[in-house]
Every structure is written in structure tokens, then in C-alpha cells.
Design a protein around this nucleic acid. Structure first.
Lengths: 347, 347
DNA sequence: ATTAGCTGGTAATACGCATTAGCAGTCAAG
DNA sequence: CTTGACTGCTAATGCGTATTACCAGCTAAT
């Protein structure tokens, strides 16, 4: 149980009867000194390495070279609590897979919590430990983003982000097109009076949905827009019915569930009398027993793409890119043809 | 958009009109030079730091001091795929929380995958980047464990582990006692003929359950032991019924679910005619609609304790410890009093 | 015999920080 | 006015690696 002293290249060098520099050269394939070191010497060095089980200290490596094949992962909310888990898990999965394939390790920046809201720039920002960083979260801190951009530290956001003193590199989901496609579908099914439940501004993801929506509703009547998401379902349902809408777009799955449940209780058939569309898929939606018509968010693919983009940025200094992945429509069973008689409008 | 060159202490020193050493001293609270640096100088340095947003490079820090407040997390299987997620998530949650409280960041060692099975010791072990490491997984590689122990690298296993050329530091669940307590409960309910479905050896967790089981069944008849877990439920159920057992212990929740479902289909009431006990709780068990009698596995607490132990080991060179946390019984509704007439034994 | 070119290496240095030894200046005591 | 203690700071060094510049020894060409 002899406390094995840390092995260094110097130790290997001594064993192999060469210099530390030679060990390093052998270790690194030494392109610049390709034919320089004969097979025999390599053998001796490699033998010493094998015998001792030496591995280069990654810290020193990074010190010397400036890179360490580590990607930071910053989440604006703790990643694992079950409340968040459903949100982050697919992203983390994609990141982990891509990182593994690319030979990178992941540094979870959990330490830098400043009160309730997490901060990238705490006193002790360890961000720099990593070669680059992926940033996730529902809501970003704009000032921090600005600073990240300004410092031109290599990072990639998962999810589209507005400019922050410059373009932000990201991989997001094309919510706007996804939403627009659903609008088209609704139109094709004969609906003319539609409603929208959810804010039209706020986070980028919210904004994009509204943008896609409002850009696609030509020829349709937006008879109700209920921006307040938190209000009771009964009230929402009342407003919707009163408006004469036959198809409603929800930003929040939760709202859709409440309203649908309530509608069913009141004997209003979905989608026969009333169609519901949710703007984005959500894990655990199946539990409700109802498969809402919506579009898919390719979370895993987004994360993978973001990771790969980050690595390209780190390794090849690739310029900033912004990518939106398509969000395919999900059939579901809450969108049907427009009813011939509008519900409750002609008593 | 001037590409901000990486700031170093030398830059700060220049700005504050002091030496790099002074900056470092100010930065580190400098116990040894407590009163040595006057407030005024500190102010100047701190101002420069504030103005520039300087943060010390953790790599250099680690280089110089040997520690960097990073904990490695090695999982023998990918952590986030949903199949595994249910297994790892509670652990990761506990680790993340504890790490955050203790001011550590987490390094996910994903990179060193060698084929299907992950390896701690790849060519390029990055393990040492962290101050210490937590090791998780259903199945450990014994040789790697041996090596970890031999190198006396600070690590802690989550889950009990057999000696590997020396005691392995771990925080585990006390499956043996948890199992024994369930056996006692079964006995107290009047059962005399019992069965066990699952192997008696293999991973430590399996072994412990069997050990707890076989050590507690004095006075009971073990009328069936079906070590093969993968066989069809019908066959298992046949064997169990044929044996005349009135209470069955399952290692695998999945088996229990299949058998219970089948039993119900055949009109055999659980637990009236037939009691089922599962050795350990499992996330997502609720989805089956049946709450199986079992014991809880305090995964989050285990992970927290392991993290704290690791930090003590790193910071204070604490000697190796082995801790088992109690697994409390879970009432459930699949364990009842022994039936007066054994099912199907007297046709 | 001198030079040029090649082979097989090595010495030296940088990376950014922590830490230790020690230096110049001041002030009080002797 | 010398000594000693103290104050406020800095120079120097080490951590383990990657990399560059360079050197010794040899051969082949001039």
C-alpha cells in the first residue's frame, strides 16, 4: 500500500534513459519530429510507460497547451431536481453522447450559485477551466450573455438567443416555422376563427412562437388572445367560447390540459366542437391520456448539434453560427375539421 | 469587439501598480500574510479585479496548489439515456446538491469509453483533473477498482463494494437489513412457505439481498428459488404456484410486475392468496398502478453522503470509511397475511 | 579537410498561479 | 548611531507538460 508518488514524465525519462522532452515527443505522436525518434527509443519509452501505468497529468497538459478536452455545461437552473429533470434530461443526454463521441469530458458548473438565480460570473468562475461552454436554461441573463459574447469565450447556447452586443452562437428549434405549419394545418381544416393563449413576448422561445403565429394567420380571424397564462381554466374557457374561436393555440401544455379537461367535463367535445393545438411537445404529456396536436422539439438533436458546434469552435476557431432545427408536426388527436356550427354561438 | 486577451494576475498587478505576488496574496485571503498587506493596497487590487472582471485560471491554480475544487463523477453506463436516467438521476441530484453546498464543481467523465463498456483508465485518464472522484454504476470493473485503491487516489463508490486489494470507500444502502426486515414481516404475517426470484450472487447489491434473505429465513421453508430472472412470467408463476409458496421475494421489480399481472389475469388475488415483496424501491414503479411492498433505497442521501465523504477525504485526508444507510420498509399493498389454504395446492 | 546535411536527441522556456525567502524602509529601544 | 523588530512588498521558484531552438556526432559531398 505504498502511497504511489505521482509519476511524471521525468520519472519515465529516467527509466527509459532519455530526457523529459523525448518522453513528451513520443507521447504526442510528435508530428514536427516525425522521423526524428527511432522506433527503438520509442519502444523503450513506451515500455516504461506501460510498466508504470503512467498517464499525463491533464492539468499540466492544459497548462502547457491551453486545451484540455473539457466542455463546461452551465444550466441556469439546477439540472437534476425532478422538476427540472424533464426539461434538462434530453439535452444532457444529447450533450453527453456527443461529448463522448468527440472525446470530451463535461464540467457541470454547479458551484457558482449566487442566491436563487445562478450566475455564470460568480467570484469563482470556473468557466475557464473548460475549453468552451454550453449554456442551457429557460431564461438567460442578458448581461451575462453580453459579457460572454464580448469576451469571445467559446460558448454555444442551446435554444435561440437574441443578439447580446453581438450575435450569439446557438442551436435552437425552429418554433416559428413549427408554429406556422400548425397554423396552415388549422386553416386547411376549415377553421377561420382562432385564438391564442400565451404571451406574445418575453423569452425568445415565446417570441418565436408568436412571430410564427402572427406571420401565418393571414386570412384567419384572431378572435381572442389571452396573454395571461396563469388565470383559472374556467375563465380562459369562457373567454374562448365567447370569442367563437374553433381552434385554440396554447403555448403552455399545462393550460391546454386544464382547459381540455374542463371542456370535456362540460360536454364540449375536442376536437369535434373545439380544436386544441399546443406549440411544442413536452415530456410527460402522455400521462394526460390525451395526445395533443403540436410540433416536436428535437431536444436531443439540438444538444448534439450544439456540442458539435462548440467543439468546432474550440478546435478550429469556427466563426459564430446560428442554427435552427426543424420542429416536425405531431399529429395528435386534438385538432379536427372546423365544426359546421360554432360551439355555443347559436344557442 | 476587441478580442479580450486572457487576463492574468500580471495584468491586474500592472493596473494596481503592484507585483503579481501581491495580487495572488490579496486574492487568497493570505493567512500567512494577514496584516501584511494594508487595506489601501487591497482596495487598489480589488478595484482592478472588479474593473476587469478577472478570474483566476483554475487550471493554473490546480497546477500550483494541487487542488481545484472539482469532483469527478464516473458512471459505468451513460448517465442520461432515459433507460438509465431513472437509475442515475437521484444519485446525480444528491451529488449536485452536496457539491454545490460544498463549493465544488462536477466533472462528468464521459470521454473514456472503450467500446461498449466504459473504462476509467483509458489511454488518457482525465481522472486526475479532479480532486477526487465518485464512481457509480450497476456493475463495477473489479480490476479498475483494485487499481484505484492501490493508487490511493481519493474516490468514493456509491453502493457497497467488496474489497479490491484493500477496502473500498463507499456509501451504500443496507440491503441485507432491509431484506431481513421484510422477511421478518412476512413471518409475522403467518407465512411459512416462501420463494425467492433472483440470483443469489453476482453484483454486491444482489449478494447482499440474498445474504439478508438467507440469514433471516430461520423457521421458514424456502420452497422455491428461481435464480433465472429472464424467463417468461408464465413459467415463473407456474413454478411458484407448484411450490406452494404463499409469499415471494423478487429482486427485480420487472419480474414482480409481470408475475403479478399474470396472476391477476388468472384470477389469483394478490395479496389475499399470494403475497409479493420486492427487494428495493424503483422509480416509476407507480406507473403499474400497484404499490409493491418493498424497502426504500435512499439514493439521494447515499449520493450526498458519498459526496461529503469524498470531500472530507480530499480536504482532510480522512481514512477510508464504509457506510451503509438504512433502507426503510415500504408498506405497499402486495403483502398480506398468509392465506389459510394454500393456493392451488389442494385442487 | 572542410562543409553541409542528416540523425537523434537535449536544454530551456512558457503556461498562470501559490508560496517562500528575503529586501528596503521605518521606527523604537538601547 | 547601532541594533532589532516590524511593515509592506517583490523576486524567485515550482507545479508537469509541450514546444522550440539548438547541439553533438556522423556521413557524404566538395
Amino acid at each position: 500500500m505504498a502511497a504511489t508518488k505521482r509519476l511524471t514524465q521525468r520519472d519515465i525519462a529516467r527509466l527509459a534513459g532519455v530526457s523529459q522532452a523525448t518522453v513528451s515527443l513520443v507521447l504526442n505522436g510528435a508530428v514536427s519530429a516525425e522521423g526524428r525518434i527511432p522506433q527503438e527509443t520509442r519502444e523503450r519509452v513506451n515500455k516504461a510507460i506501460r510498466d508504470t501505468g503512467y498517464v499525463a497529468d491533464p492539468v499540466a497538459r492544459r497548462m502547457a497547451k491551453g486545451l484540455n478536452r473539457i466542455l463546461g455545461v452551465f444550466t441556469y437552473e439546477p439540472a437534476f431536481p425532478s422538476a427540472q429533470a424533464d426539461f434538462f434530461t434530453p439535452f444532457l443526454l444529447g450533450i453527453e453522447e456527443a461529448a463522448q463521441e468527440l472525446g470530451y469530458d463535461l464540467l457541470l458548473l454547479t458551484g457558482a450559485a449566487a442566491g436563487a438565480q445562478r450566475k455564470i460570473f460568480g467570484n469563482n468562475t470556473r468557466l475557464r477551466l473548460a475549453d468552451g461552454c454550453l449554456v442551457l436554461g429557460r431564461k438567460f441573463d442578458h448581461d451575462e450573455l453580453t459579457r460572454l459574447v464580448a469576451e469571445d469565450y467559446p460558448f454555444v447556447a442551446v435554444g435561440r438567443r437574441d443578439d447580446a452586443g453581438g450575435p450569439v452562437p446557438y442551436v435552437g428549434g425552429d418554433y416559428a416555422s413549427g408554429t406556422a405549419a400548425l397554423v396552415d394545418r388549422v386553416r386547411a381544416l376549415g377553421h377561420t376563427r382562432i385564438a391564442y393563449v400565451g404571451p406574445s413576448h418575453g423569452a425568445e422561445s415565446t417570441f418565436d412562437r408568436w412571430a410564427g403565429f402572427s406571420g401565418a394567420i393571414a386570412g384567419l380571424d384572431l378572435v381572442a388572445h389571452i396573454p395571461d397564462v396563469a388565470q383559472p381554466a374556467a375563465q380562459t374557457l369562457e373567454s374562448l367560447l365567447a370569442s367563437g374561436a374553433t381552434a385554440v393555440f396554447f403555448i403552455e401544455l399545462a393550460d391546454a390540459i386544464h382547459v381540455e379537461t374542463l371542456a370535456r367535463q362540460r360536454g364540449i367535445a375536442v376536437p369535434e366542437q373545439f380544436s386544441i393545438v399546443v406549440l411544442g411537445n413536452h415530456i410527460r404529456a402522455e400521462q394526460t391520456g390525451r395526445r395533443f396536436t403540436s410540433f416536436s422539439i428535437p431536444r436531443e438533436a439540438m444538444a448534439r448539434a450544439a456540442t458539435e458546434m462548440l467543439v468546432r469552435r474550440v478546435e478550429h476557431d469556427e466563426p459564430i453560427q446560428q442554427i435552427l432545427l426543424p420542429c416536425e408536426p405531431l399529429e395528435g388527436d386534438t385538432l379536427g375539421p372546423a365544426p359546421l356550427t360554432k360551439p355555443k354561438t347559436r344557442p
